[in-house]
Each structure stands twice: as structure tokens, then as C-alpha cells.
């Protein structure tokens, strides 16, 4: 996804796909991406998934950045969790097989924080989704109009380039 595409999705998502469930899904996926290191194929695939699904992208991206800020704290949980999984004797054949597969090393599965982050993200996915959905209700009721009337969104919408790029409007 090119940077312009992400920006386009971001602005568009502020007004469309704002159903509380879509906001909840966006926040839950963004939460998982935020927990794991970004310089690997897993994070990139999750990001593509966030863009490809009909979920609220801006909320996903905002959640991702917010969670990234608390990573030093989150790593204290995800690192030992991942280490325990990666060094568990019964799972050794699985990890060894994955380690010997082409492309798999690019996913960074053998990084303790990535594996622990994925697991923690999966475990918290549903609670975060529900919390996100509740936030979606609140956003639609109180915040959406204020966001749409903000100077940033207005200036973006007023630009000719923006008008040309988003033919269908936002």
C-alpha cells in the first residue's frame, strides 16, 4: 500500500465504514499490529489485511500508533510469553520445520516479542473488539461531527488534488 493510498483510506474512513462493528474490528486489528515489531512480513501482512477488509482504517492506524507507544511495557509480557513458546520442547519440531521453510524467516516468527505479541493480541482480540465497538457508538454520537468539521479534514477536502483523487467524494 503506497503512502497516498493509506492517506486516502484514512480520510475516507473518517466518514465511511463508521459502523460501530467496523470501528471495533479496525481497533482490534490495529491493536495486534501495534503489539508486534513492524519490520517483518507478519506486520506487513496484517497491515494489508487491515487495508483490505471493510473495517475502519483510521481507528486501526490510530490504535496501532497508540499501542506502539506502550510497547516497552507490553514487551515485558510478550517477550517471556514468546520465549516460553519458542523454547517449549513439544513445539520444537514445529518451529524447526518453519525455520527451514523458505520465506518464513522474513515473518520473524522466531522473535520472542512477535510471537508473544501475536498470542497476546489473539487472546485480547475479542475484548478489544467489544471495547472498540463501544467506542464506535460513542464516536458516532459525539466525535464524528467534530472530526468532520475540524480544520485538517476541511482543508484536505477543499484541495483540488484531493477532489480529483477521491472522485466519489467522502
Amino acid at each position: 500500500m503506497n503512502p497516498l493510498g493509506i492517506l486516502r483510506q484514512f480520510i475516507k474512513g473518517l466518514t465511511s465504514d463508521t459502523d460501530p462493528r467496523q470501528i471495533g474490528w479496525g481497533i482490534a486489528i490495529g491493536f495486534v499490529i501495534g503489539l508486534i515489531p513492524k519490520g517483518n512480513l507478519t506486520a506487513q501482512l496484517l497491515l494489508v489485511l487491515l487495508m483490505a477488509l471493510k473495517v475502519n482504517i483510521p481507528m486501526g492506524l490510530i490504535t496501532m500508533f497508540l499501542v506502539s507507544f506502550v510497547n516497552p511495557l507490553a514487551d515485558k509480557l510478550t517477550d517471556p510469553l514468546g520465549y516460553a513458546l519458542l523454547t517449549a520442547e513439544p513445539l520444537a519440531p514445529l518451529w524447526t520445520a518453519l525455520y527451514n521453510m523458505p520465506v518464513m524467516p522474513w515473518t520473524g516468527f522466531n522473535n520472542t516479542v512477535l510471537l508473544g505479541g501475536l498470542l497476546a493480541g489473539a487472546a485480547l482480540f475479542v475484548p478489544v473488539f467489544f471495547a472498540g465497538r463501544a467506542f464506535g457508538v460513542y464516536y458516532n454520537a459525539t466525535l464524528r461531527d467534530r472530526v468532520m468539521n475540524s480544520k485538517f479534514v476541511k482543508s484536505m477536502k477543499a484541495s483540488m488534488l484531493f477532489d480529483w483523487y477521491f472522485k466519489e467524494g467522502v
Binding site: 515489531p37 514487551d75 517477550d79 518451529w95 525455520y99 522466531n110 522473535n111 520472542t112
Partner: peptide, 13 residues
């Protein structure tokens, strides 16, 4: 090694 976390290595063919 990675900036975050630890990298665990496994035997390679």
C-alpha cells in the same frame, strides 16, 4: 539481534 525481543534460532538443514 532484533531491536525488540530476542531471536531464537533452531537447527537448519
Amino acid at each position: 539481534e532484533a531491536a525488540r525481543g530476542r531471536v531464537v534460532h533452531f537447527p537448519k538443514d
